[in-house]
Simulated scan of single mutants.
Amino acid sequence: MKNLKFDKTGSAEFSKTLKARVNAHFKNTNTNIYGDGRMVVKTIIMLSVFFIPLITMSTGLISSPALIFALYITSGFGMAGVGMGVMHDAIHGSYSKHRLVNKYLGYSMNLIGASANVWRVQHNVLHHTYTNVDEGDDDINAPFFLRFTPNAKRYWVHRFQYLYIWFFYGLSTISWITTKDFVRLKRYRDMGFFGKEGEYRKEVMKIVGWKLLYYSYALILPLIMIPLPAWIIVLAFLSMHFVTGICISLVFQTAHIVQDAAFLNPDQEGLISNEWTVHQLATTSNYSPRSKVFSWLIGGLNFQVEHHLFPNICHIHYRKLSQIVSETAREFNVPYLVKKTFVAALWDHIKMLRQLGKA
């Protein structure tokens, strides 16, 4: 990867003004940037929705295939809720002002089969810093049969990606908990992360250990305890991950892979032709800003603009911050992308996928 850097010569006043107004908001309302009791309630609910169905199946008292599928799928929604509404804030350090709280709640990522440390590099460092930038944002670094940026090479198969991509979205978390963490860990080591003596080996062992724990209680124990053929249990387990994969993929992809988002190519020296704050606004889109229930379910990630600008602030504050950000952007003539509904954002994502498949 090139030594990427942003152009700091323009829009500095916008960034300075926005930060000052956001700081003033918290000072004037006598609140802090972290979570509160609402996050505790959400954490209990999401962890319960994830774990209770798995615990119920592990008692061996359930023998109905339909009920097994229902319990696993329910757990899949809980897994998505833990990922978007608990782990996400904790790993960004915005759940609590206490580092240990963030650290241990960040382990909820490991409890659902993935690596918090690998995610921290992929998401916090690469995606948040170099959003929609080729060679920087690992979220648009897709296998050859998917094309998420107009700067990537186009193959004939991409013409149909808007039709088959849902299958791969559904497979995204099962891929994540089997191979993707190991592949990314190696790539990130080659990029300069996990470079301390013994760190890479230690991280591999951690990932293996956490995955063994996850598979033990999410699949092996139900296989032992449930008096049904193994193929039914495995298929139900895969359906859980398919639901989680679809939920997480659609929430994140509809914020960046849309028609009005920018996809920038750094120049030969690695310079990105935008100041960082403006870059985030140009590459990120909100959706469904009025739906409080939907926002609660997906961890405030319908306010992706605010999240990208202030990832150190808990998502419970994004709705109010969005008023400050949109007004300041309008004042400085900076783009502020937003779709009225999630359906509109999803339709725009589909059109973008078709567009990427044609040119």
Rank of each mutant, 00 (worst) to 15 (best):
F252A: 04
F14E: 07
V234A: 13
A230C: 01
G10L: 00
F148D: 00
A90W: 14
L346E: 12
H256D: 10
K97G: 15
S249D: 09
F51I: 15
F252W: 08
F145V: 07
M57S: 00
L221C: 13
D137N: 06
Q259S: 13
V82A: 12
H315Y: 12
F263N: 15
L219S: 05
F14Y: 15
G209E: 04
H307C: 10
P143N: 03
T43I: 05
P150T: 09
A236M: 00
F182P: 07
T283E: 15
G93W: 02
F342A: 10
H98D: 01
R330L: 09
P222C: 12
H25D: 02
V305D: 01
K211D: 05
A152E: 10
T277I: 15
L212Q: 02
F332C: 03
H317W: 03
H349C: 02
F77D: 02
G81C: 14
G85V: 03
V40W: 09
I140Y: 02
L238N: 06
S64T: 08
E13C: 01
G209A: 09
T149P: 04
I33C: 00
K153I: 06
T74V: 01
T17A: 11
P150H: 02
K320P: 06
T328C: 13
K211L: 06
N124H: 09
I174N: 07
Y95R: 13
E275V: 07
D190I: 03
I174T: 10
K206R: 15
F193H: 15
T173A: 01
N32A: 01
F342I: 13
Y107I: 13
Y188A: 03
V86Y: 05
W166M: 02
N3T: 09
S291L: 10
L346I: 02
Q259D: 07
A116P: 01
Y188S: 04
Q259A: 08
N333V: 01
K186Y: 14
R354S: 12
L4K: 04
L281Q: 14
D134L: 09
W276A: 06
Y169S: 05
T131I: 01
L212R: 02
I165H: 12
V243F: 10
L271N: 14
Y318N: 08
I226A: 00
M87P: 10
G113L: 04
H25C: 01
D348C: 06
T277D: 05
D260S: 14
R21V: 12
D260I: 07
S58H: 06
G76N: 06
F14N: 08
